[in-house]
Amino acid sequence: MSVWKKAAKAHQKTHKERHQPEDRQHLGLLEKKKDYQRRAKDYNEKKATLKLLRKRALNKNPDEFYHHMINSKIEDGRHFEKDTEPEDTADQNQLMRTQDLKYIVTKRTQELKKIEKLQAELHLTSVDVLKKNKHIYYDKEVKKQAEERTLQHLMEQELPDVDENTLAESAKKRKALYRELSKRIERERELAIVQQKMETAKAIENKKSVLKPKRVKKGTKDQAPIYVWKYERKK
């Protein structure tokens, strides 16, 4: 029967709602039925939410403790979440989003080689200029006398004149090498952290692993998150 009613109303005239008269234009737009429905729906939803919150407040146990008490705060009557340290920095997010694991491993290997090369250069700059005595003495008395003569000869020998400009340039070069070494060590540490995070994410997303891991420690910008998998017996 309802089908026939709908069919009969299909050809009825659609009545349009009137617009705001010209003498009432100063009152603003005339509210239509759809505007009233939207406003009434919003009002009823807020009313139901306030009723539910009031009920929860009445049933709340004042002696109950939950962790959100220490993870939030109230300032000037407004509720705020405490600032938590993000797991990834902006550079780490960009690397993990735009590059793959092989690229990170390759760049980290290059940085390690450059660090070793810089460390070798810095060791060479601190080599002693004086030649060491390579004679071998088997008799203790003769060895002792030779050492005394060598020491006396070094004390009597005059030190060579060194140009102050040469010393300044050498110190400047050594300082620049140390600065570059520090930057490369920091870059290698960042790449190592990104590599650990990507390897952890890849292990979690592995579909072959049926057992889901459990996160033991949340990750930070200086450390990847720690997960523990349940023991799986090998066949």
Rank of each mutant, 00 (worst) to 15 (best):
K13V: 10
K131N: 09
I185G: 04
R38W: 02
A168W: 09
I226N: 02
K9G: 10
K113R: 14
A171W: 03
P160C: 04
E87I: 00
A201Q: 07
E147I: 05
H26L: 10
Q94Y: 11
T166P: 00
H153T: 12
F65R: 11
I115D: 02
Q20T: 14
A168F: 12
M198S: 01
E75T: 09
S126V: 15
L159W: 04
L52T: 11
S72L: 01
D42F: 10
L101W: 03
K140P: 05
K173W: 07
E147L: 03
K73V: 12
Q195K: 05
H153S: 15
Y103H: 14
H123A: 15
K140L: 05
F65Y: 13
Q195N: 05
K202D: 12
K140M: 10
E186N: 12
R233W: 07
K214P: 01
D76V: 05
H79V: 12
N165L: 07
K82G: 04
N61Y: 08
S72C: 08
I204G: 00
Y227D: 01
D42A: 15
E148R: 06
H123W: 08
K107V: 08
A120K: 07
D100P: 02
N61T: 08
A48I: 08
K82A: 04
I74T: 07
A176P: 03
D161Y: 15
T98W: 00
K207P: 09
Y227H: 03
H153F: 14
Y231G: 06
V142N: 08
E186A: 15
R187N: 12
D23C: 08
E111M: 10
D128I: 07
D23V: 11
Q12V: 05
G28V: 03
K41R: 04
T109I: 06
E199I: 03
T200E: 00
L112Q: 06
N165F: 01
R187A: 14
E22K: 09
D163S: 09
K16Y: 08
H68C: 09
E156Y: 06
V105P: 04
E156D: 15
K202E: 12
G219V: 00
H153N: 15
L95S: 01
D139T: 01
Q20E: 04
K51I: 05
R184P: 00
L53D: 09
E158N: 05
E141P: 02
S72T: 13
E85I: 06
T220D: 03
I115P: 02
A176V: 04
E158V: 07
I104Q: 00
L52N: 14
D100L: 01
V216D: 06
V3K: 15
K34T: 15
R187W: 02
E22D: 14
A171Q: 11
K234H: 08
L52A: 14
N133C: 07
K235T: 11
T49M: 14
P86V: 00
V3D: 13
K218V: 14
K114W: 06
G77K: 00
K140Y: 06
T166I: 11
E205H: 06
A203R: 07
Y66M: 11
I204M: 04
Y138A: 12
V3L: 15
E22V: 13
H123N: 13
T109C: 11
A120Q: 09
T109N: 15
D91A: 11
